[in-house]
């Protein structure tokens, strides 16, 4: 008996918690509103299923509890009922899956005009690279990594000379322009994760992965790492600043290119050895 009541209470409590909970998804700041919509749809469909199943069970528990003299019915199966339930469930699953797959299709098709940038993860910090005037990123390899070339850019690749290196963990992006983020790790798995843009993707050493999004809201967002990468994992933070096109240009022109950084390093070295 009390279990029937408990089940009603569990359902009621869960719904109440859902309504009253102050913990909700962060305000979205990218074009991936569809993801939120699909999740909302999933919540409605599955939530209805949960409530229906548990309440029906609670009713059975109340109605068919043992009382002296009761005898259960003998009912091995009911193929028609089972077939119907199967069909209804299949339809519900298709309702969830179809929009999900459509949105996934968008998620993996990067727009042609997307601006390409690169995020590099290392235990335990973020750095970034933006293409220079030629609009192309130069090649890279862990072999080239040394103290003056922490991202491992290929020194011989002309495309890479004008790349802008951002070592400060702070990435700026212009609002309203699709960005394709190339992801590269120098040591272990990391994951580029900004809750407000919904999308995330692993950084895998040895390969370059990617994902894309369009920033839609000006503001500052925290970049976290969402793939366990050792004891410093929670401290691996960065900042993403979404700003107007003009602000973004100002910021960009202030960044150092690969060539400049090597020159300044070299001159610093020379000074150091002259002393």
């Amino acid at each position: 008996m009390s279990i029937a009541i408990a089940m009603v209470l569990v359902v009621a409590g869960s719904i109440l918690f859902h309504v009253l909970s102050p913990w909700r998804a962060t305000p979205i700041a990218s074009n991936w509103g569809f993801i939120d919509d699909t999740m909302g749809l999933t919540f409605l469909v599955t939530g209805a299923g949960f409530v229906a199943v548990i309440l029906f069970m609670a009713y059975c528990l109340y109605r068919f509890r043992h009382v002296p003299g009761r005898r259960a019915a003998y009912e091995p199966e009911n193929q028609k009922l089972e077939a119907w339930l199967g069909i209804v469930t299949t339809i519900a699953v298709i309702i969830l899956l179809a929009p999900g797959l459509l949105v996934w299709g968008q998620f993996i098709t990067v727009p042609k005009d997307a601006m390409v940038i690169e995020a590099v993860g290392v235990q335990w910090s973020w750095s970034f690279r933006l293409p220079g005037a030629d609009n192309q990123l130069g090649s890279s390899d862990v072999r080239y990594i040394d103290t003056t070339n922490s991202m491992g850019l290929s020194p011989a690749d002309p495309k890479g000379q004008d790349d802008l290196l951002i070592a400060s963990s702070e990435l700026h992006l212009p609002i309203g322009k699709p960005v394709k983020v190339l992801l590269r790790s120098i040591d272990v798995l990391h994951d580029f994760y900004v809750p407000e843009i919904r999308a995330k993707m692993d950084l895998v050493p040895g390969v370059v992965t990617y994902f894309w999004f369009t920033p839609t809201k000006i503001g500052e967002y925290e970049i976290l790492c969402a793939a366990y990468c050792g004891t410093g994992h929670p401290q691996m933070r960065g900042k993403m600043v979404i700003e107007s096109e003009a602000d973004f240009e100002t910021w960009r022109t202030a960044q150092q290119t690969f060539e400049q950084s090597r020159k300044s390093d070299a001159s610093r070295d020379k000074r150091a050895s002259a002393q």
């Binding site: 993801i35 949960f50 919904r198 969402a226």
Partner: peptide, 25 residues
């Protein structure tokens, strides 16, 4: 039954590839 149904339906979130993207990890 209660916990399994509850855990089963959240599986539908995580199995549906695009919904998994924000929720995974």
């Amino acid at each position: 039954l209660v916990t399994f149904v509850n855990g089963g339906i959240t599986g539908l979130y995580l199995g549906n590839v695009i919904v998994d993207v924000p929720l995974s990890a």
